[in-house]
């Protein structure tokens, strides 16, 4: 008996999205230094976080962070961090000069 072949259902494909990579400096004001914001960020958005440098004093917390993910997720992550009160700059910092 010939094997019954079942016609495969067409799989709905989404257009592959190239991951976006952003290299950022995060600057935390003193009131946010104890908050686990990067952990919360990973839970909230589908992104990969990668810390490259960090420095914490009583006055400021500075984290050099690489974010990787879909463009919308990366953009939303940056927006969420800023909403919490973190200053977010590209790793180049002052791209716009006089």
């Amino acid at each position: 008996m010939a094997a019954r072949t079942q016609k495969a259902k067409p799989v709905r494909r989404t257009r592959p999205v190239a991951p976006t990579r952003r290299r950022l400096w995060l600057m935390y004001p003193p009131r946010l230094i104890r908050e686990p914001l990067i952990w919360r960020l990973s839970g909230k958005f589908h992104i990969v976080t990668n810390i490259r440098q960090a420095s914490v004093t009583d006055e400021i917390g500075i984290v050099c962070l690489e974010l990787q993910g879909g463009q919308a997720d990366v953009k939303a992550s940056i927006h969420w961090l800023e909403k919490q009160g973190v200053n977010v700059e590209p790793v180049e910092i002052s791209v716009v000069e006089s």
């Binding site: 952003r22 940056i78 800023e82 977010v88 700059e89 590209p90 790793v91 180049e92 002052s94 791209v95 716009v96 000069e97």
Partner: peptide, 26 residues
């Protein structure tokens, strides 16, 4: 806003194969 302009320009500098004077040529 300035911050958005700044981030977009960093993105443009990373994407296009140009000599961005104060980014990849810094």
């Amino acid at each position: 806003h300035y911050d958005e302009v700044n981030r977009l320009c960093a993105e443009i500098a990373g994407k296009f194969d140009w000599a961005f004077v104060n980014v990849n040529m810094r």
